[in-house]
Structures are given as C-alpha cells and as structure tokens.
Amino acid sequence: MNSISLGQYYPAESPIHRLDVRIKVVVAILFVVCTFLCKNVLSFALLLSLALLSIILSRLPIGLVARGVRPILIIIAITSLINIFFSTGAPENIVVDWWIFTIYREGIYNALLMIVRFVCLIVGTSVFLTYTTTPIELTDAIEDLLWPLKKLGVPVHDFAMMMTIALRFIPLLVDETDKIMTAQKARGADFSSGSLAQRAKALVPVLIPLFVSAFRRAEELAVAMECRCYHGGEGRTRMNVRHVHAKDFVALFGVILFGVGIVVLNTLNIGYSIS
C-alpha cells in the first residue's frame, strides 16, 4: 500500500486525469447541479450521455465505475419503491390497482428517472474526483478554492496542511500496523480466536509499538519541517504552481453548456417530465 492507493485513485493516462484539479472540483459540483436540474426525459438522456462521455474520456474500466454504485444500491431500491407505490398520477394512467396498492405510470417513470439521477450523481463525482484525483491533490485544490475564507482570517492553509499530513500518514500507519501484526504473529500472537476480551488484549502488543512509532514519526516530521523553516501559509509559494490551460476551460465551458442544454430541454414539453 502506498500513499496513492488510499482512497480509490485509479492511475491512467486520460484527459480527465490531466485536468486541473481545481477545475475538476468545479466541474464535479456543476455536474451534481445538472443532475438536479433535469426534469424531463430529454434532459435526463442528455445527462446520461454526459456521464457516459466522461467515463469514456477518463479511460476508467466500466466495471470499476459500476462498482462505485454498489454501496448505494439499497438507497436506490428504497427510493424507487417509494416512488412506484406513492406517486399519484392521472386516473387513466393506473397500471396496477390491487388491494391497497395503486401504481400509476407516473410512479414508474419517476422511479426510473430517479435511478438515472442517482447513478449519474455517483458516476459524476467518482469520475471527476475519487477515481482520477489523489486525495492530496484534492486538499491542495480545496485550499486554493477556499481563498475567499483566507480574507476573513480563516487559517485555510493550516487546515489544508493538517489534512495533507493526515492523509499522508494513514497509509504509513496502515503499513506499519501490518508489519507489527506480522511480527507479533511470528511470535505466536493470535488475533483471530478467543473471546472478545482476549482479542482486545491481543491488540496491546500491536497498539503500543504503533503509538510509539506514530509519535516518533510526528516528531521527526515536525523537526524536519522546522529545519526547513516552515512557518505556516504566510508568503509561502508552491513547488508545483498550477496553471489553468485551455483544455481546462474547454471542460468548464463544456459542462456549463450541458447545463444550459439541460435547462433548455426542460422547457420543451416533449415526453414525460417529473412534477
């Protein structure tokens, strides 16, 4: 495990991987807004094609993106059921009328469009953020995007630095835990059997060395940062200054254009539209 495998970053060479991270954050936010703007079948179709296009552009395996939807399958199922059973519509559109259940065609349409909305929501955020951006790039980008707060005296830089260090340390600590557990197993430690109390006790030989090493690392890092005259955000410049390139503007305008397209399609009175 290394720093990159934290989160779900998927390394690949693609136009989306290369986008400026700040732009990617904005694009992801706009994309989410777009999913909520959609009202009728046409605009949903446009949304779906934008989602597909971004998957293709990102060169992510489709299976990976599909797996991202899995955690919210339950939510999707529940909302669909609620939509199907509790939407009411025109009396001539009743599909099933049995016992206490009355299902309208509108309910089914609503459920389907809801599913599309959820899936696009997940696809949009995962393609633009989780799978194509490392957590560290993300904190950097967020620091940049939050610059207005700096003017208000919020220590944005320090929060971002803490965040970065925490993210950097998680894989290290996971690695370390793994090593220490293996070392204690070699001396016969048993983590997987016995009562709950016994198992908790078996963790002592892991936790003590882990804490010791975490404190040691933190101290070393602090000293190393001080030795290099780190003094917080004031007047600090970046090693990799990010420049927004033409392609970033293309992406930004592309997604804005899609948003406009969705609004326009919403006004057309063609096909079914969510009330």
């Binding site: 090593k179 293996t182 197993k185 070699a186 060395p209 090493s213």
Partner: peptide, 29 residues
Amino acid sequence: REHRFRVGLVMQYPEYQLFEETIRRDIAF
C-alpha cells in the same frame, strides 16, 4: 501457529515490535 513456533522469523527492523515494560518480559512474549 505451531509452524510459526517451529520456524522463528525475525523481521526487518524488529526493534519496532518491542512493547513490554521490560526487555525480560518482551523476550518472554
């Protein structure tokens, strides 16, 4: 576990695995 007792492995940088209050107790682990 019996195999692990028969084949004693000292990992790379084993000093980071010490955890007991005294060396004696740690060797006895």
